[in-house]
């Protein structure tokens, strides 16, 4: 069986080099502005850094993708158009887009530049995907994290492009690109600003024997002082509803689908995506190396061991998320 393509994040040039050296097949990154969905301070690439990153990747036979996957702001599309134009100019292998208008722009103005559909477009079935393929010439779709492996297999039988699935890292429980929870509490959202539950709106406060973490005006977690205090990502918080008290939406877990690689390959998936452009160089190095080994085993038809990355993951527990039907 073909080895699954390993698509790895790079938030900085150093992380890019680490991922390339650790065995990534493809790198994805973004420009240093709100055109990408990981618009965090100190992260992402200037134009010069991108040009250098493309050279470094291509020298190693690795592809480089540019994520331009927020939704352009009304009245100021220029920044997003420039991102598409510059990705082409500096030799990126593809752009990852979510917005209809931007897809139309890219298909018209940079038709030779390969287009991938971002998870932010939330194309969750074969008909939606084929619409993007036929209309905008999309060559690959990053599947929303609401599908089971069986559903992914069925989709692959009915579409005319490649699929990429998330395999490791942060886990959105909501359909991405369709979530305004963060904007409700902070005014900053993934779609508009490329930020969810931003650090600028987080406050940790000691109250008696408790440590409270707030997002905007709302308490997201309250733990005993001394206990590990999770970052107040809105959908991973502790709330009460209908007599239930706890993680109403999702436990503070992260995704690890390493044991599903054979199933993904059988389901016709082309590429595996690792989340985490905000992660450190050493994290990237460890995760990429581990998944490179896992994909080598997958290609040889060998069993894949549950990997040893657990200590790196958020909340130290992992889930296969929506890939297993019981998650719903």
């Amino acid at each position: 069986m073909d080895r699954l393509e390993l698509v790895c994040p790079a938030g900085t040039p150093a992380a890019l080099r680490a991922a390339v050296d650790a065995g990534a097949d493809t790198i994805y990154c973004g420009f240093r502005d709100e055109t990408n969905a990981r618009n965090f301070p100190g992260l992402n690439f200037s134009r010069e850094e991108l040009a250098e990153g493309v050279r470094y990747a291509h020298n190693a036979g690795v592809k480089l993708l540019v994520a331009i996957n927020t939704f352009p702001r009304a009245g100021e599309p220029e920044k997003w158009h420039a991102a598409v134009d510059d990705a082409a100019k500096y030799g990126a292998d593809a752009v990852i887009l979510a917005d209809l208008g931007l897809l139309a722009y890219a298909a018209e103005k940079q038709s030779q530049l390969r287009r991938h559909l971002s998870v932010q477009a939330a194309a969750a079935n074969a008909d939606a995907i084929n619409f993007y393929v036929d209309t905008f010439g999309v060559k690959r779709v990053v599947l929303p994290r609401v599908l089971t492996v069986q559903e992914i297999a069925a989709i692959n039988r009915q579409i005319k492009c490649e699929t990429e699935v998330f395999v490791f890292g942060g886990l959105c429980v909501m359909a991405e690109g369709r979530c305004a929870l963060s904007a409700y509490a902070t005014g900053r959202s993934p779609n508009m600003n490329g930020a969810c539950s931003p650090a600028s709106h987080v406050v940790y406060r000691e109250e008696g024997s408790d440590l409270v973490s707030k997002l905007g005006p709302f308490t997201i977690n309250r733990v005993k002082r001394g206990a590990p205090a999770p970052y107040p990502t809105l959908c991973k918080g502790c709330f009460s509803a209908g007599g239930y008290e706890g993680h109403v939406f999702e436990d503070p877990v992260s995704l690890d689908a390493a044991t599903l690689l054979q199933e993904f390959a059988k389901a016709g998936v082309t590429a595996l995506k690792i989340e985490g452009r905000q992660r450190s160089r050493s994290y990237i190095q460890t995760v990429v190396r581990s998944f490179r080994e896992a994909t080598e085993a997958q290609a040889k038809g060998l069993p894949i061991m549950a990997n040893e990355l657990k200590r790196l993951t958020e909340g130290q527990t992992t889930t296969a998320g929506a890939y297993a039907k019981t998650w719903r």
């Binding site: 009304a74 009245g75 599309p77 979510a98 917005d99 722009y105 939606a128 369709r178």
Partner: peptide, 28 residues
């Protein structure tokens, strides 16, 4: 949901709901 664009006859008038991402003039 944009899945509907696959099924809708070209030129047939329709409304777009608030859960479709219309953030800019290009999309509009």
């Amino acid at each position: 949901d944009l899945t509907m664009m696959r099924y809708l006859e070209a030129g047939k008038a329709f409304a777009v709901g608030p859960l479709v991402n219309v953030y800019n003039e290009g999309t509009l």
